[in-house]
Amino acid sequence: MSEEDWLRQDRLPHIFCAGCGNGTVINCTLSAVEQIGWKRQETVFVSGIGCSSRAPGYISTDSLHTTHGRALAFATGIKLANPQLNIVVFTGDGDLAAIGGNHFIHACRRNIDLTVVCLNNMIYGMTGGQGSPTTPMGGLSTTTPYGSGEPAFDLCGLATAAGANYVARWTSYHVRELTRAILTGLENPGFSFIESLVQCPTNYGRRNRFKQVADQIEYFKSHTILVEKAARMREKGEMIPPEMILAGEFVRRNRPALGVRP
């Protein structure tokens, strides 16, 4: 089998805009699933609502495209009713952290055996570019026309505090690292949370000084700092500029998990 076999060929090309990072994260996820050697018939993709949540519709396994924010609750039911199934959840920043925030922290607390890939484009893509809980301070959106005045969520910090067994962050530029992080998430029992920053050229990039798709990718490349390096800098009392994206593995641990295959 190859990654191509995991795609519903009859549904491509997908609906994502040109240059949308969602497609890249699908590639990384399927590559990880392929590497771990899961079988199609024992793998289920689940999602909520949003551009990012359309991803399972392009994957040839059983897939449940649910309601806005609720993917983790649906996935919890599937996993507990049949722990033999391997479950990957695709979710957006709005889906996960706004309307689905409660399900997110509780799924982390239960440490239920799911792998959750959050495609964080810092915006509500599907509804046309409104502010989300991860829109950075000052970020422009249709509902923050003067710049967002609210602090953004640190999704990885949230997952760590709430109890997830594995937490990592990368971006759609870091395809190899992201693939490896997702693979580690798939292997790790319990709740694995992988956040990938992704470009939304249509609704975020365009309004926030990334004229070309490549501009935001270049930004991801140049503004990423490894967790380890950040820790060293902090030790030395150096300042980490607030716009830097902390990337890498935040947590890998063995809290008791729910729904692990017997």
Partner: peptide, 11 residues
Amino acid sequence: FGKGYGVHVTG
């Protein structure tokens, strides 16, 4: 789910 039908379920 889990039988290899590869069904897509959406609202």
